[in-house]
């Protein structure tokens, strides 16, 4: 099969970019979207052109490194799917496919389809952890945790940090990312001592980094490859509000 792609090309963060049209031939329906880009890139290299830069690594939907805006939808048309797990059988060869990078001020374009998402690391560094030095831990069975809480914590912890939530949010807010971490750790007994400060510190970091504010449009959860629920945001807000009321 043959597809027409309109791919965002941009040499560096300071340079201007634009959409460039490419035809790719010999695409099988079993190829993943990234394998289709591999085919394009091998051809470009042989033609002496520089290939399209894009981030990817595990190619099994867990590392969170890939992420493209495909026809205006983060990670493309399939729900709960990362770009690397998206297959070409879902695309109509008659329609051109528009491929853009994530767009947000705190995610500057590095090159082509590759963006710098280290702002998400900064949010976690601000407090997304439990302080537990190695070797100081009590026995793992010292504190039983109700199964429901452990399961809910897991659901939030499944976030892969791909940044699709930011890319899709009309406000450019990473609230779902931050809330997933706050909820994961806040639901566990081990996470209680730092619960309020964690929520507050991460939210402050998020605002300081230049992200937009959350208005709960729900776009994030629709494109989230791991289906992190919107309710995590309420949990984060609850903790932040409690922290404010207690005059922290």
């Amino acid at each position: 099969m043959r597809y027409t792609l309109r791919v965002w090309r941009q040499r560096g963060p300071e340079e201007s970019g634009g959409l460039v049209d490419y035809d790719v031939d010999g695409i099988s329906p079993d190829m993943s979207f990234l394998e289709m880009l591999d085919v394009l890139n091998e051809r470009l290299v042989l033609d002496g052109e520089e290939p399209v830069a894009f981030d990817h690594d595990c190619r099994e939907g867990i590392c969170g490194m890939c992420g493209l805006m495909i026809d205006g939808v983060a990670h493309g048309p399939e729900r709960a799917t990362t770009t690397c797990q998206l297959h070409m059988r879902h695309f109509d060869p008659a329609e051109p496919i528009v491929v853009e990078p994530w767009r947000a001020a705190p995610f500057p374009v590095v090159r082509d389809l590759m963006v710098d998402r280290s702002a998400l690391d900064r949010i976690v560094e601000a407090g997304g952890y439990i302080s537990a030095p190695a070797g100081a831990a009590p026995d793992a069975h010292a504190v039983p945790i109700p199964k429901a809480d452990a399961d809910a914590a897991f659901t939030a912890a499944a976030c892969i940090g791909c940044g699709a939530c930011v890319a899709a949010c009309p406000n450019g807010s990473p609230m779902l990312f931050t809330a997933a971490k706050a909820t994961h750790l806040g639901l566990l007994p081990q996470g209680q001592p730092e619960r309020l400060s964690r929520a507050e510190d991460m939210l402050t970091a998020q605002d300081d980094l230049g992200f937009g504010g959350c208005t709960q449009t729900g776009e994030c959860t629709l494109v989230c490859p791991k289906g992190i629920p919107l309710e995590t945001i309420a949990t984060l807000n609850h903790d932040v509000l409690t922290a404010a009321l207690r005059g922290r």
């Binding site: 805006m69 767009r103 001020a105 504010g213």
Partner: peptide, 10 residues
């Protein structure tokens, strides 16, 4: 929101 997304999607 506008500041957080200075370049909009094509």
């Amino acid at each position: 929101a506008r500041k957080a997304r200075p370049v909009s999607y094509a």
